[in-house]
Design a protein around this nucleic acid. Sequence first.
DNA 1: AATAATATGTAGATCGGTCTACTATTGCGG
DNA 2: CCGCAATAGTAGACCGATCTACATATTATT
Lengths: 177, 177
Amino acid sequence: MRMVGVMAEAVEEKGAAGTGINEVLRRSGAPRGSLYFHFPGGKDELVEAALRFGAGQVEELVLRAASEGGGAADAIGLLIRLLADRQEAAGFAKGCPVAAVAVEAPPGSELAGVCAEIYDGWESGLAALLAAEGHPEETAGQVLALIEGALLLSRVRRSRLPLESAARAVHALLERT
Amino acid sequence: MRMVGVMAEAVEEKGAAGTGINEVLRRSGAPRGSLYFHFPGGKDELVEAALRFGAGQVEELVLRAASEGGGAADAIGLLIRLLADRQEAAGFAKGCPVAAVAVEAPPGSELAGVCAEIYDGWESGLAALLAAEGHPEETAGQVLALIEGALLLSRVRRSRLPLESAARAVHALLERT
DNA sequence: AATAATATGTAGATCGGTCTACTATTGCGG
DNA sequence: CCGCAATAGTAGACCGATCTACATATTATT
């Protein structure tokens, strides 16, 4: 579904509210009827699909990093490098696809729930990686916060330095025995 | 200017694109003409003012935390506690006022520049605090990323736990000699 | 009187959403 | 293998609402 990809890209750049369905339809070439056929729920449903799509893209990076062998520290370091590559490839016009929705979703809304769900999934993934090496339980959340914050700063500063710096911070966090 | 305050609040909850000037006018009781009298640049200029206003609110917390004596670790710990209080008071419907704009500002735009400027200021403040105790230069950026990420997670999870956890991570970062 | 600010009216574009019509594909009884 | 109905999906006109912005008063203030 080309619409979802276009929406995901636009949302990551300008937020959900800043992206009109007209623009999505134009850029994807799809007619208006198709949107409401596949997504009877309208824009919200399309945004949700785009959110899950974007999250899936990031998840692929997580899996790739985790499977690349090495310890948790190396895997997370690699993940951050992959994220930095992603940012750079997008000309630093993007960020975390989930964050873009999370900061404007009304609390308690469907979309806010999906965001929470995705973050929980990511944190669980990190936790599994870290628990195998005996790190404290809360470390996964700290690493996630560090990465999310670094993604934001990377966008604002148009540089991969914040992410690289965050990677070093992760190492420091993991080195405390 | 009541309009700015209303706009700042709305932006932090729903993003700039998700907030119409009509709503701001209605909630602030100001007439339409007044907006374009005080902000000839229209919505963008109002958003910028709201952005600086929101950033100023956070800056007050930073100053308060820094002046409360104690070392850098204590000051940052207190800052995070104050931020958590702020989140809780808002029912976790907010986050960082700058982040809400940063994630949807077109790169290179006026607003994106203001966001970068504000973050730079915050990081400089943290850096001054940390440099006095001989911490590595990049630590300030790492702490800032941690806080921003924790603010985001705090909103999504509707809990102050991510911020409290981030505070412990900051301590861990600062304890490496 | 002159300026500052308030107070509306309205223009023009765009928004999300619904509607009907059209085409392609599939399933099925003979 | 055919014919036909049912379904899936495309296509775009159209609607009311809302958006930002501008234009034109009107009222305070000095």
